[in-house]
């Protein structure tokens, strides 16, 4: 699991992990709304920069404007999208029933409401897959470049 923080938003803790060969995608797909973290289709993510850019954007919206989705975690999925269409964002960047590579992402505010010390390992417990290092290497080699190009170019025109 990767622990990250955003310089401007030290009051928030960001935890993220990469799961490969996830077996229970169908079940997870049904539970997305009740999970205390976001589940992102890893095929759409090619770098940590891309992932944390969305986290930064979500924190800006939360702090200085308003969330357009239910919580900070889901807001990150919307922030990954080049458009402001929420349904489209979840369809594209959220997990599908067949998704097997999943990035789990949890943002917590402050110490109190955050993950209780020593329980980090159970945070993403419901995901039945093999956790591998969340790094630029992992993301870069497993991303679906065609999908990413398509999303990017649709916006340019």
């Amino acid at each position: 699991m990767l622990t990250h923080s955003i310089p401007q938003f030290q009051g928030f803790q960001i935890k993220a992990a990469y799961f490969e060969d996830v077996k229970n995608g169908e079940l997870l797909r049904q539970q997305v709304a009740s999970m205390p973290f976001a589940m992102i289709d890893a095929a759409c993510i090619c770098s940590l920069e891309q992932l944390f850019c969305a986290v930064h954007k979500a924190l800006l919206e939360y702090t200085y404007n308003r969330l357009r989705t239910k919580n900070l975690n889901s807001e990150c999925i919307l922030s990954l999208s080049p458009t402001s269409n929420i349904g489209e964002a979840f369809k594209r960047f959220g997990i599908k029933e067949t998704t097997t590579n999943i990035i789990c992402l949890a943002i917590t505010e402050g110490k109190e409401s955050g993950v209780i010390e020593g329980t980090e390992h159970v945070l993403f417990q419901g995901v039945e897959g093999e956790e591998i290092e969340l790094s630029d290497g992992t993301l870069g080699s497993r991303a679906d470049v065609e999908i990413i190009k398509k999303v990017r170019l649709n916006r340019a025109t």
Partner: peptide, 10 residues
């Protein structure tokens, strides 16, 4: 010298 969100680039 601080990147807004990518620690690796600061």
């Amino acid at each position: 010298n601080v990147h807004p969100y990518d620690i690796g680039r600061s």
